[in-house]
Design a protein around this nucleic acid. Structure first.
Length: 287
DNA sequence: GTAGAATGTCCAG
DNA sequence: TGGACCTTCTACG
């Protein structure tokens, strides 16, 4: 479920519940028991996101590095955590859910956070953390980051803009949904080579990503349709099948484009599904 | 019940 | 380029 907005939201959500406090850290699943033991009873002093990477800081030179991959998820709840319930079952209460997939649980007297299914959950040093930053491109959600750095790479590349947008070395945090949607919003053919974009086009894409992804953090979901294209504005049924966000093309293949009615198309590109509207994003097309 | 897909990334060949 | 990996949910028997 995670694109960059999810990770930045998680950084804020962990901070809200645990920052500046000693936490209990455990690995009910067992795969991170050693790491959890090293931060157990330590104070969480920093939470930070860069692209799809999340860092939880516990004092000098000690970070938990989390990458959710395709399936990872964090569930927050109020204390007691499910495991605690199991240890002291409430008489007549509901059966506690299974917890054996929880890689990392952070808990304090008021709240818990359960991490499941991450690609990465590891204890790292400052130097290892810096190495991760060094191989990531600018992130539209990091205020100090600058799209110009990405342009240096894009403007010299023969690779398609659709592939470049997913390359985390070039721009960090964009995933399959934002890539499809931002190209649609700017009327850009996904197969156009990076070097065939103009600087103004790239600047517009970058600032649009900043705005869209900030909204994504606020609402914890991806919405990309402009006000005039919402279900209410157009009198069309809202999207129900998906994660709730209103989009133009992502997973809308074989349905009509909200703007021009052309059938949305899909194709594999670099092992991911690409979605676009041939009408609005044809050669030189502008939405 | 079981297969397949899913907003991601790495590595071997 | 294909497979491996991590988990959850849906569609289909």
């Amino acid at each position: 479920m995670p694109e960059g907005h999810t990770i930045h939201r998680l950084a804020a959500d962990y901070a809200e519940r645990f920052l500046g406090q000693q936490v209990r850290a455990t690995s009910p699943q067992g795969k991170f028991s050693d790491g959890a033991a090293l931060v157990d009873h330590q104070v969480l002093d920093t939470t930070e996101a860069h692209g799809k990477h999340l860092f939880l800081g516990f004092g000098a030179d000690r970070w938990i590095h989390i990458h959710l991959g395709l399936f990872g998820k964090v569930g927050f709840g109020t204390a007691p955590s499910p495991k605690d319930l199991r240890q002291a079952p409430v008489q007549g209460g509901p059966p506690s859910p299974p917890t054996d997939t929880v890689r990392l649980r952070l808990a304090n007297p008021d709240a818990y956070a359960d991490l499941r299914g991450p690609t990465t959950c590891a204890l790292i040093t400052d130097a290892e953390k810096q190495a991760i930053h060094d191989r990531l491109g600018p992130d539209p959600l990091r205020p100090a980051d600058d799209g110009g750095r990405a342009w240096q790479r894009i403007s010299r590349s023969r690779t398609t803009i659709a592939a470049l947008l997913l390359d985390q070395k070039i721009i960090a945090g964009v995933g399959n949904v934002y890539r499809a949607e931002v190209l649609f919003r700017h009327g850009i053919d996904p197969y156009r080579a990076g070097r065939d974009l103009t600087r103004p086009q790239w600047d517009a894409i970058w600032s649009d990503l900043v705005a869209l992804m900030r909204e994504g953090v606020r609402h914890n979901r991806i919405d990309t349709v402009r006000p005039e294209h919402t279900p209410e504005a157009m009198g069309r049924p809202p999207r129900v099948d998906d994660h709730g966000g209103e989009v133009y093309v992502y997973r809308r293949d074989r349905q009509g484009c909200h703007i021009c009615g052309t059938e949305i198309r899909t194709a594999g590109l670099a092992a991911r599904n690409l979605f676009w509207c041939p009408g609005c994003q044809g050669a030189g097309g502008a939405a």
